[in-house]
Design a protein around this nucleic acid. Structure first.
Lengths: 212, 212, 212, 212
DNA sequence: TATGAATGAGATTTCATTCAT
DNA sequence: GATGAATGAAATCTCATTCAT
């Protein structure tokens, strides 16, 4: 490995350290309240270092959002790909998928993304766009694909898989915000499971085969 | 009318003027970026006047949220109460209700509330709570009541009206965020109508009578 | 009593009420920190009333100082006039006078005056001047007169009574500031008495007749 | 000298510059009227620099008082240590000491301290305490020690040196406040000398050997 | 390259003072 | 004559950003 390579790796490492420090602070405080000072301290670097790596607060923020979106995407895609399509297993596996997706949504990373989209998209539409490109769309497409497979296999009626995917996500989280008081109250897994299940039930009823 | 009454009215009017000026600024800029200066200028009063009426930025913000929640509640409740329960009318009226609710959700007032809940609840959980008490819960209960009536009338199967209400709202807005790119892009009524309709369709399929 | 007279009395009463409210607030907070609002509330009147009676904060302050000086003067003069000049009584009476003067110095009114002179004379020399005219000089002259009488009576040697008066006051308070930590600590009468007595002793030694 | 050392020196220098700028402004204006802006301008630095060095107005004030107390202490201790104890010299030297102490008391630094104690101790008792620890007590002890030496040498009768020290200071300044109208009027050295001398005379009479 | 030091700009908040009733 | 309401001006303090080492 050459000296230059070593430097490039060091750079990448420090980028990672800064991004990992930035996300929870942006997530907890919001864009405005989050101070570069706090991020620098948390990352164990000095402020000018952050400026040299990212250029400014806004850019750091965007990269932080994009980075979280990528992480979120990877996590969720893996979950989706595990859906069992077999005749015996698909139903239980779909319920399981719903729970796993809900867990992913309650990850600090996902909470951060959701908050930033809601809070900062009006100020900077790029925030929404980057999350859509790096997470929302791939996730929806993957989920739509899997639901289509369930349709093809004759387990469900899925005339519009993309729509079904969106509705699936909407239904399984329909009760979550109220249940957790927007993330300000801890809730037992039991109750989360019940809420998610109710969403899956409705989804299944809406897409059931006539015979069922 | 006595002098005191006149003063009380003047006070109330000025409160209104300030609240009306504050909501869009908080909504556009978020709590931190919104400056008292800007709100004062928009309201046509001086900064100290705002402090004398509301005590401080945080209190003004809370009152602004509460005020918007009350307005939102009034608007939505009126829409819900217009649901036609008759055998011939209920289906078209339910579709119409879904559209009207969606319109209410895209009102500046509702956009403001949604953004503030997402952005500021982590900082101040009271934000979520006041909106729940003054808007979310009454709206859900009213909607649940109406859906129950549709159940009683034999038009739909509604074993859990409160759940059905939440899912109804979730389904009709499942596609809206993506469609409008989180409110950053204008969208034709046509496309909104299609998105809402798809949600209603799914809801109906999930709650259909066996005979249908 | 005519209507006009009644009004004049009412005016004087309200002046008194305001002055009585102002002195402790100025005394506790200092000129800058004391707010007209607080004084108005304490006096049970509105701010504009204070402005109509006194013209402004600075004038209210000056009148408050002058008023306290007059009160202080009256109190102290009465104490001084009670000095017993008789051969048997003068010594005990002088000790008693020293204690009474010290008590007068620890009165809220006197503490207020002392603080205001030290704190505000640099900003407004008139503060010192008015206290000197209305309190310090009359008090010193009265005390000097009494000490001269003790000299004439042959009890003490007092070649310069005015100087002796100043030194008497200086000596009896030489230990007080340290003892009370500048008024921030309560101290037993016992210890105050001892400190004052030590001052009187020194004074007596310095002005003793040869025979003593 | 390393880079770190150079920085540490630079920091210390800038601290000094700020403290030197702050003392006269606090002294002239008092705590409340003194503005950080004015101090920053006088020191030739920006406001945030002051905040980074001292944390806030209150802390800057305390450090300013402590710093002045240390300076005052150094100055006065040096004067006291010069007291000549020899049989031929002590009397003239004591008179000289009294004058020098009076000059020290009229220094801007001492005026600042006296004013701040009187004006701000009620708000923050720490002000008095720090001055006592860093200046008043050491000075009194040093003076008491010297007076005790005069007693040991048989020049004066000094049964309680600490008390004698306090009274000495009280007597030599008994006339100063009135003479200078609390520092608002310039006074000839001649008159100051006479006032101080009168205090020393009384002190000497009170502590004279029987033979004298 | 990385950093300690410094700052310009702007935020909230307070207060003495005046106006209109 | 007395007051509720309103405001201009100024205070403290914070922060993103840059410079010099």
């Amino acid at each position: 490995m050459t000296v230059t390579d070593a430097r490039r790796v060091a750079r990448r490492d420090k980028r990672r350290v800064i991004l990992d420090a930035a996300a929870p602070i942006f997530g907890d405080e919001g864009y405005e309240r989050a101070s570069i000072d706090a991020i620098a301290t948390a990352a164990g670097v000095s402020k000018p270092t952050i400026y040299s790596y990212f250029g400014g607060k806004e850019q750091l923020f965007r990269e932080s959002v994009a980075d979280s979106a990528v992480q979120q995407n990877a996590q969720v895609l893996e979950v989706i790909q595990r859906l069992d399509l077999s005749a015996q297993g698909w139903l239980a596996s779909l319920r399981d998928l719903a729970m796993k997706l809900t867990e992913c949504q309650r990850t600090p990373c996902a909470v951060f993304l959701a908050r930033m989209i809601a809070a900062e998209t009006a100020r900077d539409p790029e925030v929404y766009r980057v999350v859509r490109v790096k997470a929302a769309t791939p996730i929806l497409e993957a989920l739509a694909g899997r639901l289509a497979m369930l349709g093809n296999a004759g387990h469900l009626i899925v005339p519009d898989p993309a729509l079904a995917a969106r509705q699936f996500l909407a239904l399984i989280s329909a009760e979550i915000a109220e249940l957790t008081e927007h993330g300000t109250r801890p809730v037992s897994d039991e109750r989360v499971r019940a809420a998610v299940s109710a969403g899956v039930d409705t989804f299944l009823r809406a897409h059931a085969q006539a015979s069922r």
